[in-house]
Simulated assay, not measured.
Amino acid sequence: MKFHADKPDTLSISAIGDGWVAINGERHENSLVVTSAGHVLPWACARFEDLAAPHFESLTGLMPEPPELVLFGSGERLRFARPALMRGLIEQRIGVETMDTAAACRTFNILAAEGRRVVAVLIVGG
């Protein structure tokens, strides 16, 4: 499935397939973090079952200001992480939305194009 950004100068998730995500045309086959500030980083959580609080705690210092929202792409299907894992984000008043990875990619593109401070954490292929 291909996606297109409204603003060509914005980092965008350009496509997603079985076991991969493309960011500005570059294919990634491992879980990753994408920020509206332009960062694409590996995320040390390959499988939903491996989620731990530090995976989410590491997301707050990735941008000059904390994100308004973290989009958690849980893999090929919608799965909710235990709330205790995201407590640090919630206590900092950072919103967390959970959706399957394809939906998180589409939502990231929309919010980033609007200029929102958003981070997408994507489990790829899980």
Score class of each variant (00 low, 15 high):
Gly19Pro: 12
Val121Gln: 03
Phe80Trp: 09
Ala104Tyr: 04
Arg116Ile: 03
Met99Asp: 01
Gly17Val: 02
Leu41Gln: 08
Glu65Arg: 15
Thr35Asp: 01
His55Trp: 11
Val40Pro: 02
Ala81Asp: 03
Leu62Glu: 02
Gly38Thr: 06
Val33Ser: 00
His4Trp: 11
Gly95Asn: 11
Arg47Ser: 09
Gly38Cys: 09
Ser36Lys: 00
Val40His: 04
Arg93Gly: 09
Asn30Pro: 09
Ala112Asn: 03
Ala37Thr: 04
Ala113Val: 05
Cys105Ser: 05
Trp20His: 06
Glu68Asp: 11
Thr107Met: 10
Asn109Glu: 05
His39Ser: 13
Val34Trp: 02
His28Arg: 12
Ala84Asn: 15
Ala52Lys: 12
Leu122Glu: 00
Leu11Ile: 10
Pro54Leu: 06
Gly126Cys: 15
Ser58Gln: 12
Pro54Glu: 11
Pro67Asn: 01
Pro67Tyr: 01
Asn109Arg: 06
Val118Met: 04
Gly75Trp: 05
Val124Glu: 01
Ser14Met: 10
Phe72Cys: 06
Phe3Leu: 10
Glu114His: 15
Asp6Ser: 07
Arg77Glu: 13
Arg82Ala: 15
Ala103Val: 12
Arg117Phe: 03
Asp50Ile: 14
Gly38Lys: 06
Pro54Asp: 05
Gly125Tyr: 03
Gly115Ile: 09
Glu49Met: 14
Ala15His: 08
Phe108Asn: 00
Trp20Asp: 07
Asp50Leu: 15
Val40Gln: 04
Phe48Arg: 11
Gln92Arg: 13
Asn30Glu: 11
Ser36Arg: 01
Arg117Ser: 08
Ala22Arg: 13
Gln92Leu: 12
Phe72Asp: 01
Asn30Arg: 11
Gly61Trp: 04
Phe56Leu: 08
Pro66His: 10
Ser31Phe: 05
Pro64Arg: 12
Met99Tyr: 10
Ile16Asn: 04
Leu59Cys: 01
Leu78Asn: 10
Ala46Trp: 08
Asn30Leu: 15
Gly75Cys: 13
Leu122Asp: 01
Ala84Met: 06
Arg79Glu: 09
Arg93Asn: 12
Lys2Cys: 08
Phe56Pro: 03
Glu26Val: 14
Arg117Asn: 08
Asp100Cys: 14
Ser31Asp: 09
Gly126Trp: 09
Ala46Thr: 07
Pro67Met: 02
Ala37Arg: 12
Asn109Leu: 05
Ala104Cys: 10
Gly125Glu: 01
Ile13Leu: 08
Arg116Trp: 14
Val124Ser: 02
His4Leu: 15
Ser58Trp: 03
Ala15Ser: 08
Glu97Ile: 04
Glu97Asn: 13
Glu57Asp: 12
Glu65Tyr: 14
Leu41Ser: 07
